[in-house]
Amino acid sequence: MPDADAASLMADIEREVRERRRAGQIDDEYERELDRIFDAVAPPGAVGSGLGAALMRAERAAVIDPVGPVASRIPGVALLRRALRKLMAFYVEHVVRQVTAFGVMVVRAMRLLGERVDAVEARSPVTDPRLVNLALPVASDFDVAPWFDLVVKTLAPVSGRVLHAECGNGALLVALHDAGIDAYGIDPRPDAAAFADERRVEVRNAAVIDHLRAVPAGALGGMVVSGCAERLATGDIVELVDRAARVLAPGAPLVVLSRDPKGDLDPIAADLAPGRPLHPPTWAFLLARRGFELIETRTSDKRAPASYAVAGVRAGS
């Protein structure tokens, strides 16, 4: 099978999966159910991350059992091992007591450190878990429909998959699919999955930067950023642009859609999100700094709230 055939086989399979999804034959809820079932049997820390879970395991591991197993299938060996264990017990237990004390104290110190980190995190809206866990509902996203034509026109000529982050209610994904563009979305909010299932579009439950970390370099044919564009903290936005530049193929477009901070902002997002919408020139600056070319800005105040699009093309085409 020559290279071209292997590539066309996979392109064919990907097309088939898209068609099955549009026909409602892909059961994403079942895949999420599989994830939940495995997560339930995995040990603390295996899925996701958690300092508390890791410390609990460290604490257990810190308590060393000085009584080694002596069983053996070879005649006489068990007896010999038992005798050795008894002879060595005074020495082994002495060492084990010290090592266990050291381990327990290290874990205790880590716990104290963890408490101080928690206190520091709680003083920043970007890291405060009480705010981080307060996912803004998809319904609070601004309406990107006025930008459909521009986005479709920009992405129509691309080859390769297009990512929409965060895709919210999936309306833009439907418009992209209708235009024959192979697009998928990501959104970390739990209610986005229900919208995706209803609209029969492919949506993964993930945060944008986490997802981009896992995408191979040059793997995407295009990318649209909305929603998170106005909620992320400034440092995260810089990282988002860096990672987008890595995962986009040369010549691939990036389109950022956002509310204009000069217009009326959504009061809930404005009060609770760690970040604020950027002004259009700031996005243009970040894209240019990361090597994007042909950067264009369009603003629209036809519909409230006022919004804008900044588009650039990954250098190297």
């Binding site: 020559p2 996979m10 399979i13 895949e31």
Partner: peptide, 22 residues
């Protein structure tokens, strides 16, 4: 090389299932 149905690393597992079915 070109001797396998190679599913992109970031593809959903549905695509693995579809490739196997093919």
């Amino acid at each position: 090389g070109d001797a396998a149905a190679l599913v992109p690393e970031n593809a959903p597992l549905h695509e693995v299932a579809a490739a196997v079915w093919r």
